[in-house]
Design a protein around this nucleic acid. Structure first.
Lengths: 250, 250
DNA sequence: GGCTATCCATAACCTATGTTAAGTTAGCAG
DNA sequence: CTGCTAACTTAACATAGGTTATGGATAGCC
């Protein structure tokens, strides 16, 4: 079993894009099988992220346990899929992963991927950027699935708050948000009317003050607690291990 | 303005991971500003995908217009964010993108990214794999947001059907799906009871026959029409242009 | 064979959110 | 200033989907 069995690699291969060295690299990866039983956990949420798994047999899924006791499944993985790309560029797993039925997976390390990437630290950076975007998307998915409107909106506002803070666009817990309630409703998948209702509710609770485009969060921490915000996915730094791995690459 | 202003690159840079050549490459990218007015469209859904945009000033968003007349916003972009990574590895845009207020963006081409990636065709492949995953996530987000339960479930089943077909795990429009209704409910963000109700409804309409783990779609096309399935995001081939770009790389 | 635990179907009832509509406010053009 | 429009608020009503509960079917196990 080689990484080249994964679907996109197969595409690259059949289109003649991969050089013979490329193919040799992929085929020589020495992937060794790991036999999994049904329901066996590949990794837990927040575990250290240091490897991928290519699914050879069986189905798996990635998931997040939610504070309200339920869980949100992010994706089902079928044979040929790669689990764990989502966490590339993060120190810890953003979601857990487990088998559904019994099967076989081929783990390979981030280290091995670095080697494939060769000299291109830039490629790693671009990739990490892309994965950050995916992480934000996943978080939204989670909130769309199982949380009430006021939690969704609170989460949305707090995320914007953090992202703006990173670029120094927040002052005194206030920022400019050039969005109409209609745009917000299209993003959160709720009706414009309900966005308004929900803003009113958050205002009454003293969590959000909004005057047209000016938004103020009097107590951002309270808002974060309300949604149990896990800000690791916004985090801008790459894992410390990356520095070593990158310098170690040929 | 250089790509290095993008957040992750800044991280890589401050951690000393980027070599001086890397930095020179990034700084020398000759990004030229494009001044955008409010509501100006960067690209339409299904347009040819050949460039990214780094946002310098203003807010933007990516979106999909839905058959029911509404639209789903996938993401808001703030200054420093890169728009269009999502479509890397696809021939056409999976979502449109537009400015919210006026601003400035720096476009750069996939070609330029290829050069950054250097010799590593493999890196391109891995990246494309990751972007395919993100695309699947986006599709689910869209369905979670604005569609009724029976449309969500139909979409879910049809996606599984296509993915299994690619790996030859479908025979006579039947396949094995080792999922309980509870797992499906955790994926779709609805209650297990409603998953059952919805299966019953699809069965009555003659669209899905399900006997424990055995699923049959008597008329897959009818199901696809019901959800207006756009299968380009499942497509396994990379754009033809990739072959040329990759071979052209130094 | 019978026992037990899952998984699933259906029903009755409840609630969050959608829909429609009417009214208020702020900004902007003339 | 006057009037117009877009953005927002609030209210009244409708409904999709959540919740709780019950019973039936199937698979595994002794």
């Amino acid at each position: 079993m080689a990484l080249i069995d994964s679907v996109v690699m197969r595409g690259l291969s059949t289109q003649g894009v991969l050089s013979s060295e490329d193919k040799a690299l992929l085929l020589g990866l020495e992937l060794s099988p790991r036999y999994m039983s049904a329901n066996e956990v590949l990794w837990q949420e927040s575990a250290e992220a240091d490897l991928f798994c290519m699914v050879k047999e069986g189905w798996a899924y990635s998931y997040r346990n939610l504070k309200n006791g339920s869980k949100q499944i992010l994706k089902f993985y079928l044979p040929g899929d790669i689990i764990g790309i989502r966490d590339f560029g993060f120190t810890r797993r953003l979601s857990g992963a487990a088998m559904i039925n019994k099967g076989v997976v081929y783990p390979f390390s981030y280290q091995q991927l670095f080697e494939l990437f060769g000299r291109s630290n830039l490629a790693v950076g671009i990739m990490a950027t892309a994965m950050r975007q995916q992480a934000q998307l996943s978080e939204r998915l989670i909130y769309l699935g199982k949380y009430a409107a006021h939690e969704q909106l609170a989460h949305f506002l707090y995320e914007i708050f953090l992202r703006l803070k990173r670029i120094n666009a927040v002052e005194d817990n206030s920022f400019l948000m050039p969005l109409t309630q209609e745009l917000i409703s299209d993003a959160l998948g709720m009706s414009p009317v309900h966005v308004s209702r929900t803003f009113s509710m958050l205002r009454e609770r003293g969590l959000v003050i909004r005057e047209r485009q000016h938004v103020m969060l009097p107590d951002p921490e309270a808002l974060a607690r309300l949604v149990e915000f896990n800000d690791s996915y916004i985090d801008e730094l790459l894992p410390p291990s990356f520095s070593e791995l990158l310098r170690a690459s040929p």
